[in-house]
């Protein structure tokens, strides 16, 4: 038996729930097939979600999942350029023709799909991003020059969460594109995803007692993002997300974290997302998305 999970035609943080629901009980008993033939577009969040699913299935010692590549040549080229197929080939049995190499030249892909396995990878990510971040953030989004370094700091802190909390490796990708329907402006999106233990299990031993019966994926996300707690006793911990929140507030940006069966978002005025969603379909690990919009020239 094979469980076919259709990759949403437009795969972003919103359609992610449809994707997660496709797995049913985790891990699914049947062999999984991710069917991306009808895919038209995927955000970095969507690309990482597929890789995370593949990684989690491998770590759950499930049969190697299948993956049918998009029919659209444009979509395939774009996913290849983002580095998706390079890692998908390690996790899935790919079916369909994949472009051999990534396209070259200027791109909206600020950071290819990049694995985060250890501290050294965070150094590499920060080095890589510094080359293109200024062009996009200052040149295209109209953010002040110093925003480039804050952006890199946010990226560094988000990636370190994988190394320190997930208990396994993860992925990061950064891309610029236009949010036509929601905002009508350019945005830069950071997506970070891992297949690890998730926020609830990471924080459980140190903080569950305090929450009593309320403890769960949603409460764990609140504890981390709103209250800035950490599983470490070190009083210096937990500052990374607080710093990211401060910058996002200044830039009218958005952060959302999904872990287990819950999702928590700090929602800026331009978005209509729900702050806290609970009882969602289970998905392994944690998925973080940070959106920084082009600054509104009339606002200020």
């Amino acid at each position: 038996m094979t469980r076919v999970i259709e990759v949403p035609a437009t795969f972003d943080d919103r359609s992610f729930e449809q994707f997660a629901a496709g797995f049913g009980h985790w891990p699914p008993e049947e062999r999984v097939l991710l069917d991306a033939r009808g895919a038209q577009w995927a955000s970095p969040y969507g690309l990482l979600a597929m890789l995370t699913a593949g990684q989690a299935l491998a770590e759950a010692r499930q049969e190697r999942p299948l993956f049918t590549v998009p029919t659209s040549d444009d979509v395939k080229r774009y996913w290849a350029r983002a580095g998706f197929f390079k890692f998908a080939a390690e996790l899935f049995e790919l079916h369909g023709k994949v472009p051999r190499s990534a396209a070259s030249g200027p791109s909206d892909v600020l950071l290819d799909v990049t694995p985060v396995r250890a501290t050294e990878d965070v150094h590499e990510v920060v080095e890589k991003i510094s080359q293109g971040a200024s062009r996009i953030l200052h040149g295209e989004l109209g953010l002040e020059m110093k925003a480039t370094l804050r952006f890199s700091m946010a990226l560094s802190e988000a990636c370190q969460n994988i190394v320190e909390h997930a208990g396994t490796s993860g992925w990061v990708a950064v891309q610029a594109y236009t949010f036509r329907r929601r905002l009508g402006r350019r945005v830069v999106v950071i997506a970070v995803s891992d297949a690890g233990i998730g926020f609830r299990r990471s924080l459980e031993s140190a903080h569950a007692k305090r929450f009593g019966e309320r403890w769960g994926d949603g409460a764990a996300l609140e504890a981390a993002l709103i209250q800035g707690v950490s599983r470490f006793r070190d009083p210096g911990r937990g500052q990374g997300l607080a710093f990211i929140k401060r910058f996002l507030d200044q830039w009218k940006g958005k952060i959302s974290i999904r872990s287990g069966t819950a999702r928590l978002a700090l929602v800026p005025p331009w978005d209509e997302d729900v702050p806290l969603s609970e009882h969602l379909p289970f998905f392994p690990g944690a998925q973080v998305q940070i959106i920084i919009p082009a600054q509104d020239p009339e606002a200020g």
């Binding site: 920060v126 370094l149 890199s152 700091m153 560094s156 210096g236 710093f243």
Partner: peptide, 15 residues
């Protein structure tokens, strides 16, 4: 130094 992230600021200076 080019970039100093929060974790390093905490480890190097605060600690």
């Amino acid at each position: 130094i080019e970039l100093l992230d929060l974790s390093c600021a905490d480890e190097v200076v605060a600690k």
